[in-house]
């Protein structure tokens, strides 16, 4: 699976919504798909899956609010 598919799988698992990721540019916070609790679950799942560390301080909602942006951020953190 590529990163995008993995992220969508995590989001589906956390939110229990089947149609998450159908629009990768959807703002997940504005549309209420993710709340703070779900966000932490997603971050923890990503840490386990990709071996990246995302401290809460570095978690800027505007940088993580769509599937596309999540894919970019994970890519950046994996390279670092």
């Amino acid at each position: 699976m590529d990163v995008k598919a993995e992220i969508i799988a995590i989001l589906k698992d956390v939110t229990g919504l089947d149609d998450v990721g159908s629009d990768p540019a959807e703002n997940l916070f504005a549309d209420g798909v993710l709340d703070s609790m779900a966000t932490v679950e997603v971050l923890v799942a990503m840490q386990d899956k990709f071996g990246i560390q995302v401290p809460v301080s570095e978690f800027d909602r505007n940088q993580w609010n769509t599937v596309n942006k999540m894919v970019d951020r994970v890519g950046e953190l994996e390279e670092a």
Partner: peptide, 29 residues
């Protein structure tokens, strides 16, 4: 409060697996 208490507390509880049920965890938060 969200960034410096709630989310950090959730992270801590989730990593240490202090509470199994996510609903209980959110409510405790």
């Amino acid at each position: 409060f969200r960034d410096f208490i709630y989310m950090r507390l959730m992270f801590f509880m989730m990593k240490k697996k202090l509470v199994k049920n996510r609903v209980t965890m959110a409510n405790l938060g």
